[in-house]
Design a protein around this nucleic acid. Sequence first.
DNA 1: TTATTATATTACCCTTTGGTTATATAAATG
DNA 2: CATTTATATAACCAAAGGGTAATATAATAA
Lengths: 104, 104
Amino acid sequence: MNTDKLFEALSEPNRRSILEYLRVQDRSVGELVELSSLSQPGVSKHLRILREAGLVTVRSDAQKRLYSLNAKPLEQLDDWLGPYRRFWSSKLDDLERFLNEDEP
Amino acid sequence: MNTDKLFEALSEPNRRSILEYLRVQDRSVGELVELSSLSQPGVSKHLRILREAGLVTVRSDAQKRLYSLNAKPLEQLDDWLGPYRRFWSSKLDDLERFLNEDEP
DNA sequence: TTATTATATTACCCTTTGGTTATATAAATG
DNA sequence: CATTTATATAACCAAAGGGTAATATAATAA
């Protein structure tokens, strides 16, 4: 899945909220509408973007559509963070200092 | 620093590129212009947004302005990912299965 | 089959975004 | 001080984004 689309999908606060609701349990569109402060089409539009980013999956249950979190793509985000980790980990900063200890 | 602003800043591919350039070494605006495919004002605008998200810092060197990466805010992203990790870590998935082994 | 329920799409609106060119500002240099 | 160099801001524009009401679709229920 595309990294650009992933970041794009995550850039919207309402979409991140939806992911957090789905982290707790699967939800129908109607439930997500109640949980959010959005209209039904609003929620559906966000769900579409999340689906296209691979962050959620749907299955049908009678007339309802149940959405589930699919966190797999977030692993990409974790990977993206990888090279930046050393910059905020103070322990590694110490290690760096140690490795560069040649200078006076 | 604000989480919304952080995600927003990271949602733009050119801005993520700039961060990667700065991960290697500090850069003047002019250098970033050459590295990117953007106009000088274009780069300056992105740098402003990165600055406001706390992801870069500036210092002056003669007429130049040298930008540095500040990865600290990315720790927030790492934290945000926290609760999602268990969803993609297959090892933990195995642990979950084990913990739920009561069911036939 | 018709009506009801649940969701997706369409059509619109307004605001924001990302890009550019032109211009202002700031520092160094002749 | 005038000029050059380097960057930031302003002004502007087209496109995208996010929101809603209205409408289409899909599945169940009467």
